[in-house]
Every structure is written in structure tokens, then in C-alpha cells.
Design a protein around this nucleic acid. Structure first.
Lengths: 343, 343
DNA sequence: TTGAAAGCGCTACCAC
DNA sequence: GTGGTAGCGCTTTCAA
């Protein structure tokens, strides 16, 4: 029994209305509008006219349910407010939307448990794929959620257990931090402080890079590591921890731009001269890093590209799932005046 | 042992499988899992057990199609890479996901035509509502797309024609810029350069605020306005345009943090001393603005709050559509050393 | 209390 | 070529 009211305001305009107005079957409407071959010019014409007249747009929900694909992907990150993440998201969104995909964005705020929940929601929503930059690499709930699905997963700068079946896009943190460390060592620094996040790949790589650099110059590694979150406060704490030691490092590498502001606060507060009393290198850029006085030496990378590559990799997997080698994108060190010789 | 092997058992686990395993009808499964009253304890128990055993999660697509609501909202912005936008998105996402909504994020890159397309896509995807921060206020395609829908729309810092039927969250740009201008005038500045984006509410408000400030002090307004995009290059151009004049302004207000880096480049290149040779105020913060030498005087606002309020307003409209007054959130001026007396 | 069945709006198969 | 029609997986009457 049809419950469509006659005239305006009755039912929403669906494929049925278009078919009626054009005087054809709904199958034909579907075919024409989805550009499938095998419709006569005049039928095509009639359908198009009717659709235009009604301002018809297909209900993606129904299409998706039927087609068993949503052309949407889920992005799971910790905090979009972080310029790093937003740049990655921006890069990924550009590629994905150009390919006709929509991005479902979730923010866990760094709470692992939320990561898991958000992933479950995304999977319920039948996303076709996932791009992940989780706060932690080992959260059981997150891993369980991930193991329960078949959709392609691309992970950025994290390593998940093999049974999760993900693809990877990494930054070559070793290159940039290695160069930075070598520079510091050649300047004469012998004890280096390293403040990094806990339990994620970039931190491990950075620590290894520093160690390697010592070794490469036949020096005995003398490294102080501060593990913790990535935040302004943490930047302050770590910096103070380094400087309060009886044997403070003469150079410090910050494993994240979120730490920079805090670290600089401490430097100022203590009246230290950057590049003289203490040398500083920051991983990842900030808009004014280059213009700071003195300019902040930085380990750079193209974060937008990181997102783009992740998206491309996902699209590839969507088209044709297959095991694939991780992509490794470059980082590079830019010497600036925040690094100087030790006193 | 709840994980199903791929391919095992034939069909994906749907409500049907749960019903069969529990030996009940699918209607009962639906009722139990959506927490509707009127199911006996033992039925509930059986269904829950079966669902758990199969690792069943309802297909949100099917639910949404049937319920005619998706619990998703679309966010349309120009560039998520802009810290301002990412902070707004972050605030909105937090509120929305806490309320059970997902966010579909789109980035137009500032191309008005893309704004329109993205909105159409979101509407096809049946989002329940829209949060907009469009690049332009007057793009015909965008407005047409917006007029074609009934979903609640919340617009941030833009004004759309009344026939679009949107709700608004504004920043009180006049307060902050007014205070900044008064400060500059009281310092003795008489000619002020203002670099703002073209054709959007914040720019109009800022111009008015500057004019009002002159008037309030019984001064004849002497304002130079540079209209354009918001980018580093534009910051350079605008700054050069101001400084190249025969009668350059002694103080400059930048209507967007995207302009700051470019403006500072020019200041440096020309060897000008900020706060002495030229005074500078920037609208919206950057992580290192406060630590710059000299610190950058800034018109502040809580951008995350902007996103939160927008989200809350949308949720309100979702629950109960009704005309509602715009929300206006504060901005405030923070004097810093980049402002000084004119020479 | 429970279940069968009618769709939600669409695609794709199959017959004409 | 074209148009019925059977579902996609779910919710929600309605009847039992």
C-alpha cells in the first residue's frame, strides 16, 4: 500500500518519485544515474530530466547498504589539535575525498580505551578502511577491536602486532635525529638529553639514532632519556629534570613539537642562552620555530605527505588487498642557532 | 573462542545469525540489543549470550536506513591544517562523540566550489546536521546546496542569507580588536594598517572595531585596509604593501595568525625593530607567539570552545529544532612588546 | 512476551 | 533495452 501523499511535502523524493515522474521503472533510474551502460538515449534523457526537476540525490545510506561498501574511511588519532596530526589528516583527506571517499574523524584525546571504542564505532559504521595513529601501540582493547575486522588498516608511525594485519607508513626518524646528534657531537657535546614519548616507534627510533651516532664516531654513548607524554607541561618537566641534574646534558633533543614551548619556558625562566649555555633540537616544526630568537634547530618532515601516502596506501589496499612493504618517508635535520658549541 | 574464521559459516554475522543461535526471532534480538523494555529475563539472557558468542555488532548502515537518522554530522571547513580550524574541530568532535555522534570531516582547501560539493556529499550521506566554517559567505553553489536541505546547520563566524535557516556561533571580534586599537591609539599611533580576509564576518567586524575605536577617542579614522586570502605569502604581501607606502602606518593589525609568519619575515628582512619602528598585533594565537622576541601582542579567543559551543548548539537543534539567538564568544587583547609607541 | 512481516531506498539479477 | 523483484540488515508495527 502506497502511503505517499499527493503533491508537495508528501514523501521525500526517492528513486520511486523519479521513476514515476519519468514514467519508467526504478531499475532504469538506478542504471541511468549510476552511469551504467545499456540505456537508450531517450530513456536516459527522461530520467535525467525527472531527477533534475525533483532535485533528486540518491540516498547514500541505501546505496551503501546494498553495495556493501560505504566509500568512507575512519581516521583514529589522539588529538587533532596537534598541528602534526591535523596536517596528516589534511593530507589524507585531500587524497581520499579526491577518490570519492569520506573521512570519519575521531579523536581519542590520547586515552587508549577511547581509541578502542572509536574503532568499534567506525567498524559498526562499516567504514571501508582505517587509518590509525593511536596513542599507544599495545592497548589490548584497541588490538582486540582491530583483530575483529577484515577492513584494510594503515598505521602511521606505530607498530602493531603481526596478527593485526596492517600496512605501515613510517617516518625515517633515525635519519634526522641521527644527523642532529652527529652535529651535536661534532660540536663537542658529549652528554645529550632526549625527551620522548613512551612506548611508540618514533621514540624507539630516536633513541637508537642517538646511540648509533655516538657509536659511529667511536664515542661512548652518554644519553639521558626522559620518557613521558607530549605536552607543554611535560616539556617543562623534562627540561627541568635535565637541568636539575648534577651533571646536566649540554644539548637536548625534544621528541615532539608539543614539548618545545614548555622547554623554552624553562630556558627563559632560568636565564639560559640557547645555543650557548644549552643547545636544543626539536623534532617537528612549529610555525615560528624558524623565527625564534635564536632559531630552533629542527628535525623536519613533510607531515602532510605522511597523510597522503597513508591514504594512497589504503586506497591501494581497497582496490586490491595484498601484503605490502612499509613506506618510509624522509626526515631531515636543519641546523639553526639553537645549537652551538658547549661551554 | 568468539572469533569467526573468515569464510566460516558462510554469511557475515547479522541479526539473523544471532536469532538463530539463540533460537528466537530477529525482532527479539533487535529489542534486547537496543535495550527496549518488554523482554523476559531469560530471553534477554539467551540473546545476549548468542550475541557475545558471535561477536555480533549491529550494522549501523542498516540501522540508520531504517531509523532515518545517522547520528553523524558533517563538518565543512577550509583547511584543517590551520591550527584555528583544527582546534575548533577538536572541540566539536569531543562534544559530538560524547553524545554518540560521529563527525564526517571535509576540507575544501578554501575553494568555494568544493565547499558546495562536499556539502552535497554529506547530505547524500544523510548526516543529521552540519557545522560550517566556509571560505566564503556568498558562494551561490554552496548556498544552493544548503537551501536544499532540512537538516540543522550551525555556522561559525560567518553570516549566511536568512533563507538558509542556520544557527550561529560568533566570536566577538569587535571586543578584542577594539581594545587593541584603543591601546594603539593611546600609545600615539594615528595610522593603522589592517590586513584581513575578504568577505567574511570577522573581517567586517574588525574593520568596524577599528573605526569605532578612533571614533570613541574623538579621532578621525586613518585606516589602511588590505584585503586578501589568509596565508604566509599574503602576510608578506600585505606587510610590504603597508610599508612601501609613502605614508606607511605605524601600527599593523593582522586579521589571522596565518599572516603572522609572513609579516615577521618582512619585518626581519627590512631590519625593522618590532614595537619600535613598527607595532604589530595579531588576531589569534600561535604556539610561539608569546615567546617571540619581542612577544607578539595578540587578540585571543578560545577556539576549542568555539567548536564545543557549535556542537552543543547543533545537538540542541537536533533534539528540538527551534529558532535560537546566535551565541557570541569573547575575544580579548593581550598587550605584548610587539606594540610600542610610534617613533 | 514474542515473532512474522512490512518496509527504509537502493542495486542487481533475471525475465521479457 | 527495460522493468519487475529479491534482498542488503535492521526496526517496528501488528497479530498471536
Amino acid at each position: 500500500m502506497s502511503r505517499r501523499l499527493p503533491g508537495a511535502g508528501g514523501g521525500r523524493t526517492g528513486i520511486r518519485q523519479v521513476a514515476d515522474l519519468a514514467g519508467v521503472g526504478i531499475a532504469s533510474v538506478s542504471r541511468v544515474l549510476s552511469g551504467q551502460p545499456g540505456a537508450s538515449p531517450q530513456l536516459t534523457e527522461r530520467v535525467l530530466a525527472a531527477a533534475r526537476q525533483l532535485g533528486y540525490a540518491p540516498n547514500a545510506l541505501a546505496q551503501n547498504l546494498r553495495r556493501r561498501t560505504t566509500r568512507s574511511i575512519g581516521f583514529v588519532g589522539s588529538d587533532i589539535r596537534n598541528p602534526l596530526l591535523s596536517s596528516i589528516v589534511g593530507g589524507a583527506e585531500a587524497v581520499l575525498s579526491a577518490a570519492g571517499y569520506s573521512v570519519l574523524l575521531t579523536n581519542s584525546g590520547g586515552v587508549p580505551d577511547l581509541d578502542a571504542r572509536r574503532i568499534e564505532v567506525l567498524l559498526q559504521r562499516q567504514v571501508d578502511g582505517l587509518i590509525l595513529l593511536p596513542a599507544s601501540e599495545g592497548d589490548p582493547a584497541t588490538l582486540a577491536a582491530l583483530r575483529g575486522t577484515d577492513v584494510p588498516i594503515v598505521v602511521i608511525d606505530r607498530i602493531l602486532p603481526v596478527d593485526v594485519n596492517a600496512c605501515y607508513v613510517f617516518s625515517d626518524h633515525r635519519a634526522g635525529v641521527g644527523d642532529a646528534t652527529r652535529h651535536l657531537l661534532l660540536q663537542g657535546h658529549r652528554r645529550i638529553g632526549l625527551a620522548v614519548a613512551e612506548g611508540v616507534r618514533p621514540s624507539r627510533e630516536r633513541i637508537l639514532a642517538v646511540e648509533d651516532a655516538y657509536r659511529g664516531l667511536d664515542l661512548v654513548a652518554d644519553i639521558l632519556v626522559e620518557l613521558g607524554a607530549l605536552s607543554t607541561e611535560r616539556g617543562e618537566n623534562a627540561m627541568e629534570a635535565f637541568l636539575d641534574r648534577a651533571d646536566p646534558p649540554s644539548a637536548i633533543i625534544l621528541g615532539g613539537n608539543q614539548l618545545l614551548e614548555g622547554a623554552l619556558n624553562v630556558v627563559r625562566r632560568r636565564g639560559l642562552r640557547l645555543g650557548k649555555d644549552i643547545s636544543l633540537v626539536c623534532c617537528d616544526d612549529l610555525p615560528l620555530s624558524r623565527l625564534y630568537d635564536p632559531p630552533i634547530a629542527t628535525v623536519m618532515r613533510d607531515t602532510s605527505l605522511l597523510g597522503q601516502r597513508a591514504a594512497e596506501m589504503l586506497l591501494e589496499q581497497l582496490a586490491h588487498p595484498h601484503p605490502i612493504e612499509p613506506i618510509v618517508l624522509p626526515t631531515w635535520f636543519i641546523v639553526r642557532a639553537s645549537c652551538g658549541k658547549p661551554t
